[in-house]
Amino acid sequence: MEGFLLPYQFVTERYFTPRRHQSPFVQQATGFQDFVIRCVRYAFAFFPAKIGRVFFSKGVALPFMRFRMLRHGFVHPPVPWREIDLGVTHGVYISHDIEEKPDLVIYYCHGGGFSMGSAYFYLEFLMAWVTLLKEAGYENPAIFALEYTLVPDAAYPRQLDQTVAGYDFVCSIVKDSSRICVGGDSAGATLILSLLLYLAKHSHRYQDLKPSFATLISPWTVLVSAENKNTASDYLNAESLHLYARQYAGSERSLDEWLVSPGRCIDGDMWAKASPSSGYGFLFGSEEVLGPEMRKLVALLRRNGCPVSVREEPASIHAWPVVTLFLSDTQGDRQKGLRDLVKMVKQAIPPPPMKSKDALRNGFSAINS
């Protein structure tokens, strides 16, 4: 019965409801965007995660990406990429010149509630990001996207251990952590926040290896919270999120641990210690289920002297920079969130003086091994 309500609700709200009574997202969305987000909202609330897991998997995501590339006139991906085996897990390395040392590395963890998603589904988004970074003045920007284990195949601390291993790899190839920006969206941003707290906790080992900046797209800061409430606009469902959170944590007690649920850490000194040298950039929508807890973390960071820039998109939804890339009609709209990210990164980690390829090339044995 619920499935029959979806098209009815779409037609009723979009075409027979006065604009002032429509949800903020519907007021500014195209018909296509509106209908797709309604379908995603329905699926998130009623479909088991294993269905979404198939859709976002490598086997489905890569053909989907090739189809979209062909639509935009690309026979081959505009930026080369290569799979990297880390032993405990693997990831995808993206760079215009894979054999050349990067002058900036974005270390990225994808979202999906810990239960779905893959680095391969994000390839189009990440390749566009690398291209825009190149246009912004970096000579050879790169992104390493982690492919961590999903629940229920494994629970915490497996994913955090893999995130640390991915960061160690990035440090090994860039050699200078001041050229590293860590980032992620949703559950991936949770892992990045956990990583930063982990680096602070183990500062004796990572004393000179802190990243310069963190870009956090709609971070899931407190995994189970009464503040996580459904909204008329967002496609997330709080009940489903809390189910995935418990699967990830493995126990109710673990949900209070700040390496599991970073927003549970209210120690300002710890956050100051964990902060990248150039701080944080937050991007999220004003209509998010996770919005209240995100705003709390932003306020906590600012109270403790951490540099924080925030881009809260009016009338928008969860992970809007990623969503707009796939659902918007024009290149400007598709790249809107990415250009905000590039602006934040460039301000935090300016491109170094231009050098010749011969000066930058170092054999790059870590990638070729």
Rank of each mutant, 00 (worst) to 15 (best):
I192T: 13
S218V: 09
G183L: 08
F46D: 09
P219R: 03
Q9C: 09
V130I: 09
E13G: 03
V298T: 15
L209S: 12
K273N: 11
A359F: 13
S277I: 13
G117R: 01
M127D: 01
V130E: 03
E135G: 08
A187R: 03
Y138N: 08
P262Q: 07
I367Q: 00
G337R: 04
K346Q: 13
A45N: 09
R179M: 13
S240G: 06
A45K: 12
F67P: 02
D234V: 13
C39Q: 15
L104P: 05
G250T: 00
Y122Q: 11
I173G: 00
G59F: 13
L297S: 05
R303V: 07
P307M: 07
R82G: 00
G291T: 10
E313V: 13
S261M: 02
V26W: 11
P78R: 03
A119E: 03
G59W: 14
I37T: 14
Q28M: 12
D34M: 08
E293L: 00
D85W: 04
T324K: 15
Y93D: 01
F56C: 00
G285M: 10
T190F: 00
Q162I: 06
K229F: 03
E252P: 03
S118W: 00
I217P: 01
Q27K: 15
L146C: 01
V36G: 05
C181D: 10
R339F: 07
R179S: 15
M354H: 13
G52N: 07
V174L: 13
D176I: 15
R158S: 12
L70P: 08
G332M: 12
S194R: 02
